[in-house]
Simulated assay, not measured.
Amino acid sequence: MNRLVLWNVDLTLVDVSIVTRDAYADAFRQVTGRPLVKLTQHNGRPDSEIVFETLAINGVAATDEDLPRFLDALAASFAARRKRLAKEGRALPGAKDALKAVSRLDGTVQSVLTGTIRSNAVRKLAAFGLDKYVDVEVGGYGEEVYPKATLLQVAQGRAARRHGAAFDGSNTVLVGDSARDVQAAKIAGAAMIAVATGRTLASELREEGADVVLPDLCDPARLVEAVTRLTSPARTG
């Protein structure tokens, strides 16, 4: 193994926003006994951060116990809605072919680096048959209270232990759609392929410093070329 490709999930590979919002509202009601009035924008942030802000903007003084309680409720609420994912959500155009194409690259490990908690991330991918292309054991997830750049390095360490290979900035690529994804890759020293399928414009992704910006995942050959080039020994800056 000589290459690690980490994928963001929401708005990079799938869009299940309606189900996610409903699950958050249900989890909030379970934890607080009140209806959810306001839900903060996700924008590439981890669930652990979104939970605290959601409680705050709805006038709830959070305690240390609230995060694990909320995340457990969120997992249960999402699981209860799993049959709605394929009906009300979608895999983004080209997502399956992109994952499949990258999986054919010799020596490549694919996993996820997502703000979504692990159980929900796996359900999102499985709803569209995308989970079989990634090693979910070595990813980074939203219940882990780390900045995303640190979480990327955690994922590298997990991949190294599981696959017996060294993964660092020279052979790691993050594929994501948000400015936060780009920032995390830059801080961690990894390469960044940004796709303009989320809420961040292509021009903003370039300004943040993405190595490659694609309009979507509909050209697997272009994606594979970028992954190969960015993880080659001759890669520069």
Rank of each mutant, 00 (worst) to 15 (best):
M1R: 00
N2K: 06
R3G: 03
V5M: 02
V9P: 01
D10S: 12
D10C: 07
D10L: 09
L11N: 14
L11Y: 10
L13H: 01
L13M: 11
D15Y: 03
S17P: 00
S17D: 14
V19C: 05
R21P: 04
Y24N: 13
D26V: 12
A27I: 07
F28Y: 08
V31Y: 03
G33R: 03
G33C: 07
L36M: 15
L39H: 10
N43F: 11
G44W: 01
G44Y: 02
R45F: 00
V51K: 00
L55K: 01
L55G: 07
I57L: 12
G59C: 08
V60M: 10
A61M: 12
A62E: 06
T63A: 14
D64H: 12
L67Q: 05
P68I: 03
A76Y: 00
A80N: 05
R81L: 11
R82C: 08
K83L: 11
K83G: 13
L85P: 09
E88K: 02
G89P: 02
G89R: 04
G89V: 06
R90A: 14
R90I: 14
A91F: 04
A91N: 04
A91C: 03
L92T: 04
L92W: 02
P93V: 08
A95F: 05
A95I: 10
A95T: 07
A95C: 06
A98K: 03
A101I: 08
G107Y: 01
G107I: 01
Q110P: 09
Q110A: 08
Q110Y: 04
S111W: 02
V112D: 06
L113S: 04
T114K: 00
G115C: 10
T116L: 11
I117R: 02
R118N: 09
R118F: 02
N120C: 13
V122Q: 13
L125M: 14
A126D: 14
G129A: 09
L130K: 02
L130I: 07
D131F: 00
D131A: 14
K132G: 12
V134Q: 03
D135I: 10
E137R: 13
G140R: 00
G142N: 08
G142D: 11
E143R: 05
E143V: 06
V145W: 03
V145K: 13
P147A: 14
T150S: 12
Q153P: 06
Q153R: 15
Q153T: 15
A155C: 10
Q156P: 03
Q156G: 15
Q156F: 03
G157W: 05
R162M: 12
G164R: 01
D168P: 08
L174V: 15
G176M: 06
G176W: 04
D177F: 05
A179W: 08
V182Y: 05
Q183T: 15
Q183R: 15
A185N: 12
A185M: 08
I187W: 06
A188K: 01
G189E: 14
A190K: 00
A191I: 06
T197M: 05
T197G: 12
T200H: 07
A202W: 09
S203E: 15
E204C: 01
L205S: 09
E208S: 13
G209I: 11
G209M: 06
V212G: 07
V213G: 07
D216V: 10
L217S: 09
E225K: 15
T228L: 11
R229G: 04
T231S: 08
R235M: 01
G237P: 13
